[in-house]
């Protein structure tokens, strides 16, 4: 424990995620993939992924709620599960080019769901994400479609939520590395006008939904 806190203080532990989001219609997805294949690192060809993500919450009080995300790879049953905590990004900060939120990623064994339910977490919602991912330096770019499960727990019967793909550009690194935002902004410039990656203000989206 002490060594973990010491590492955190020395800023070795990756705890913050800088990210930008955008979307692209189904018809334009292939052009975007071609563009990305050209500008990104090409190690090992096109990489696809298909994950099943379950979001658990604990706490009933409106102020005191914690959300954890459990993610497993559907195409590779041997891969470890991922347990993720993400915090709220700071939307009001206009000086930064990207959105910043804290994140903790933990790899775990496959009894994660049983563990979380016994601890008192309950399943809030779940979905399947499927698409392609690319790397450029330390940046990770995913072009993915989100599917809704028609039956809870059955990942074969899925239905797409929209006719577009979500494009995300993210970097998980230690806190204080603001120069990474410059890299990300420059990269986003390369992808215009196919897709506009920007700091989407989720609060506005939520207000639109309600």
């Amino acid at each position: 424990m002490e060594s973990m806190l010491a590492a955190m203080n020395k800023k070795i532990v990756p705890l913050q995620e800088y990210f930008l989001q955008g979307s692209v219609l189904d018809a334009s997805r292939d052009i975007l993939l071609h563009r990305l294949r050209g500008i990104c690192d090409n190690i090992g060809g096109i990489e696809k992924f298909q994950d099943h993500e379950m979001v658990y919450t604990i706490g009933t009080n409106a102020n005191n709620v914690l959300q954890l995300r459990a993610r497993r790879a559907l195409d590779d049953p041997e891969a470890p599960w991922l347990l993720r905590y993400v915090g709220e990004p700071d939307f009001g900060d206009r000086s930064k080019h990207t959105l910043v939120r804290s994140s903790i990623d933990v790899g775990t064994s496959d009894n994660l769901v049983q563990f979380l339910t016994e601890m008192g977490f309950r399943l809030d919602h779940e979905f399947v994400v499927s698409g392609h991912f690319f790397r450029k330096g330390r940046m990770k770019i995913t072009v993915s479609k989100i599917y809704r499960l028609l039956q809870p727990g059955d990942t074969d019967k899925v239905e797409a939520l929209s006719k577009s793909y979500l494009v995300e550009l993210g970097v998980v690194t230690v806190s204080g590395q603001d120069q990474v935002q410059e890299e990300m902004k420059n990269f986003a410039e390369h992808l215009k006008p196919l897709v506009h990656l920007e700091k989407t203000d989720l609060r506005k989206l939520q207000q639109m939904g309600t």
Binding site: M1, M4, M8, V13, L15, I58, G59, N64, L66, L68, L83, Y85, I104, D105, V106, G107, T108, S109, N111, L112, Q114, F115, E118, M119, G120
Partner: peptide, 27 residues
């Protein structure tokens, strides 16, 4: 290693320690 008194044992990375700290309101 995180063990519950029901016997379930979760094997995780070292960052799980930080996660438990985040849960300090509940645990």
């Amino acid at each position: 290693f995180a063990v519950l008194d029901t016997g379930t044992c979760l094997v995780a990375d070292n960052l799980f320690n930080l996660l438990m700290l985040k849960l300090k309101n509940f645990y």
